[in-house]
């Protein structure tokens, strides 16, 4: 299937926060309560439509466990987007965000779009991190923020797609050099960059999902 662009994403964050479950929900629309510990990198891919353009998201789901971290961080390079995930029921996963963010900033393009995700929003009774804290962290570090539930699928689509919209917006603004592979963007087969993007394309397409469906 042809596409206008391919965006490379990485999913990062502590072990057990639901990174692989988010990917599975996004690519397969299902939830698997027990998931094997991720070793190395597992891949997922899905087409999305942004402003009438087909965009392939190539998603690198990385291992969160500390032991794997030095290895997986070598795969941050060339990512256009990152989903930085914590678990709203485990304060320590939120406390570790700064360290993950440092890693991400250090090993990837400065233009990389980072979406901060507070996952497991279905577990409201066990909440340990307030939504406002996530919002404040995101604001402070220039991230986009959403709370999601891989279990109920709440905001999962939106998290991936809003990240793609932001990347696309940066392409239109000329902030991303799509010919530089270090930026994690590839032009699709037989696409002509000079005609595929224009300022007018920034208008939101009716097929797109809203910024926040408000389900969480």
């Amino acid at each position: 299937m042809t596409y206008a662009y391919l965006f490379k994403y990485i999913i990062i964050g502590d072990t057990g926060v639901g990174k692989s479950c988010l990917l599975l929900q996004f690519t397969d629309k299902r939830f698997q309560p027990v998931h094997d510990l991720t070793i190395g990198v597992e891949f997922g891919a899905r087409m999305v439509n942004i402003d009438g353009k087909q965009i392939k998201l190539q998603i690198w789901d990385t291992a969160g466990q500390e032991s794997f971290r030095s290895i997986t961080r070598s795969y941050y390079r060339g990512a256009a987007g990152a989903l930085l995930v914590y678990d709203i029921t485990r304060r320590e996963t939120f406390n570790h965000l700064t360290s993950w963010l440092e890693d991400a900033r250090q090993h990837s393009s400065s233009n990389m779009v980072i979406m901060l995700i507070g996952n497991k929003s279905d577990l409201e009774s066990r909440r340990d991190v307030k939504r406002e804290e996530g919002e404040a962290f995101a604001r402070e570090h220039g991230l986009i923020f959403m709370e999601t539930s891989a279990k109920t699928a709440c905001n999962v689509e939106e998290a991936f797609i809003n990240t793609a919209k932001e990347i696309y917006r940066k392409i239109q603004q000329g902030l991303f050099d799509v010919h530089n592979e270090a930026n994690g963007i590839k032009i699709g087969p037989q696409q002509c960059i000079s005609t595929s993007v224009g300022p007018s394309a920034s208008q939101r397409n009716s097929r797109d999902i809203g910024a926040d469906s408000g389900c969480c």
Partner: peptide, 19 residues
């Protein structure tokens, strides 16, 4: 059989060899 995705640092028990 699937293994539980334990948070207990299974890997941490082993000292990783120098790459």
């Amino acid at each position: 059989e699937d293994q539980e995705d334990e948070d207990g640092d299974l890997m941490e028990r082993e000292e990783l060899r120098d790459m």
